[in-house]
Design a protein around this nucleic acid. Sequence first.
DNA 1: CTGATGACTATAG
DNA 2: CCTATAGCCATCA
Length: 119
Amino acid sequence: MDRHLRTRRILDTIRDIPEGRVASYGQIADITGLVRGARQVGYALRTLPDGHDVPWHRVITVSGRIAFEKGSSRFKEQRERLMMEGIAVNTGRIDMRTFRWQPDLDELLWKPSSAWDES
DNA sequence: CTGATGACTATAG
DNA sequence: CCTATAGCCATCA
């Protein structure tokens, strides 16, 4: 698969995360149809172009933590953005059982291209 | 081609 | 809960 197409699909999936919800890197990869692609999701986010409209702050690690080093400026910015939309971040951690995005079947079927359209 | 890198994860202690 | 370690894999130098 072409890398730009893959990146576009990853970002499209992230755009689907509703406000007030979070998803893990691996979850985004799975929904996008990438196998063991968590690191690729991280790479796509690392290379975001200026003027993007991707809610990058809603992507965290599977253990419910912000991936950046605690105390770093990026960590603080992400925590701020999350709290801004009502997501509790306690001691750098987020309760996945409460805030994890759980798209229903309808939502996934609406965008089947990501999973099996190779083009 | 080869080795290093990283916004990842699962597992073990 | 934490750290260490080992897989993971597209990119890059």
